[in-house]
Write a protein that binds this DNA or RNA. Structure first.
Ligand SMILES: [Zn+2]
Ligand SMILES: [Zn+2]
Ligand SMILES: [Zn+2]
Ligand SMILES: [Zn+2]
Lengths: 163, 163
DNA sequence: GCAAGAATGTTATCTTATATCAAACTATAC
DNA sequence: GTATAGTTTGATATAAGATAACATTCTTGC
């Protein structure tokens, strides 16, 4: 495995997104089973809504989508599902956007490093071990014990740089 | 200049914080003058409140502090000052906390890399050129053009790891 | 002084997230 | 199968974070 891997994102416009969703669902079921937790219909629905694209989704947008199939859902409904999915490592929160996105590799515990296109909204999730260890080194120098990393890079994807 | 520099933070408890504030104010005046902008009393007050410690401060806490000396300030008052200070590079927003902190080196344009103690709230601002260039390299590999970096590491400072 | 632009005041509203308690559902033990 | 403890969801209210829009005041250059 290369030390700098693109986990997901910036797929070609024509990629079969149905496959992405199917894979994600299969993984989610596996992860939940492994953890002895329940991938309930509600959690599954929220998860599918998040995977409707490779773009981050806002909690209240999820809520609005949910409202199409559920009777007057309230904010805690979606926030609880998001909390569960984050705990399980199935979803990341993008702090700089207050939005959420499905994790591209939920099997392995990680924080994720994100490249966010300001123009089209597409997000790539990377996992660069070298970057992480550089941060650890810096932390060690000042006696800091790392628990959590928030790494979000915004800019323009290749597509959106075209003239 | 070393390639991994602690710009500020994790100062000894006994450091002369008056010096920090005085330095910060002097730099702020200089930066504003250079930019042809006005470091008004309101902006200065907000800036001083932010520099009252090396911890991030929330906008509504600033507002509450402001209320002690101003007549019923409203949210836009503090958000406008924060916007101005951020534009000028004098203040950073910590996205993972929804809080703001004075920049330790406003002269040079940078995004900042932060180590945030979950226990005591103290924040260290680093600037690791190696880290930044590693991110640029990763971006280049996927054809991404970087505009903005959000790098916030949370954990425990040396003090707060003591048994 | 006067006009134009910048900064601040004021009111209302929007967005994001949580607290709290009630009802429904699920799994296990008997 | 029923009791029951634990988990999940429903429902209401409110907290926390941020902005829109317009009025007023202040500053600066003339
Ligand atoms: Zn991930
Ligand atoms: Zn794009
Ligand atoms: Zn800085
Ligand atoms: Zn600490």
């Amino acid at each position: 495995m290369p030390d700098n891997m693109v986990i997901q994102g910036f797929e070609s416009a024509e990629h079969d997104h149905g496959d992405c969703v199917a894979d994600a669902l299969r993984e989610a079921e596996r992860v939940c089973t492994e953890r002895g937790e329940r991938f309930t219909p509600l959690r599954r629905t929220v998860f599918e809504l998040l995977w409707s694209s490779h773009k981050p989704v806002k909690a209240y947008d999820l809520l609005a989508q949910l409202a199409l199939t559920h009777d007057r859902p309230a904010p805690p409904t979606v926030y609880r599902a998001l909390d569960f999915l984050q705990e399980a490592g199935l979803v990341h929160k993008l702090e700089s956007l207050n939005a959420y996105i499905g994790c591209g590799e939920p099997g392995r515990r990680h924080q994720g490093q994100f490249m966010i296109c300001e123009e089209c909204g597409v997000v790539a999730e990377l996992d660069d071990e070298t970057l992480t260890s550089r941060i650890d080194t810096n932390a060690r120098k000042i006696g800091f014990k790392v628990n959590d990393e928030t790494i979000e890079i915004s800019g323009l994807c290749r597509q959106c740089q075209q003239p």
